[in-house]
Amino acid sequence: DLALRVAVQPGGCSGLRYRLFFDERSLDGDVEKDFGGVKVVTDRMSAPYLGGATIDFVDTIEKQGFTIDNPNATGSCACGDSFS
C-alpha cells in the first residue's frame, strides 16, 4: 500500500525544493491520483505548486532519478535541485 508522495518544501538556493519518497501514510487533505497503477499523493499545501507538473524517471549515463517538469516554477537554481 505504498504511494509515491510528492511534496514541496522551503529550501534550496531558489527558495523551494521537491521531496519524493514512498509513503504508507494517508494525511488529512491529501490529493491522490493513480497513474497506471502507481498511486501518487500530494499534501494539500504542496498541491497548488504542482498543478500541471509532470514527473518522469530518467535512467541515462548523465542522470538517474525522478525529474519534474513544473509549469508553475518561474526559476530554478543552476544545480536543478530547487525552484521558485
Rank of each mutant, 00 (worst) to 15 (best):
A3P: 01
R5Q: 15
V6M: 10
V6P: 00
V8T: 08
Q9S: 08
P10R: 04
G11D: 02
G12V: 11
C13Y: 12
C13A: 15
S14P: 05
S14W: 01
L16C: 02
R17I: 07
R17Q: 14
Y18L: 13
Y18T: 03
L20I: 15
L20E: 06
F22S: 11
E24R: 10
R25K: 15
L27K: 15
D28I: 14
G29D: 15
D30W: 07
V31E: 01
V31Q: 02
E32P: 04
E32I: 13
K33H: 03
F35M: 05
G36R: 03
G37Y: 09
K39S: 05
V40T: 07
V41S: 03
R44V: 12
M45I: 01
M45L: 12
S46W: 06
Y49C: 14
G52S: 04
A53V: 02
T54D: 04
I55N: 00
D56V: 09
T60R: 05
I61E: 06
E62T: 12
K63D: 08
Q64N: 06
T67M: 11
T67R: 10
D69Y: 07
N70M: 02
P71L: 03
P71W: 00
A73K: 00
A73L: 03
T74M: 01
G75S: 14
S76F: 00
S76L: 01
A78F: 08
A78S: 14
C79I: 13
C79N: 12
S82K: 07
S82W: 15
F83I: 04
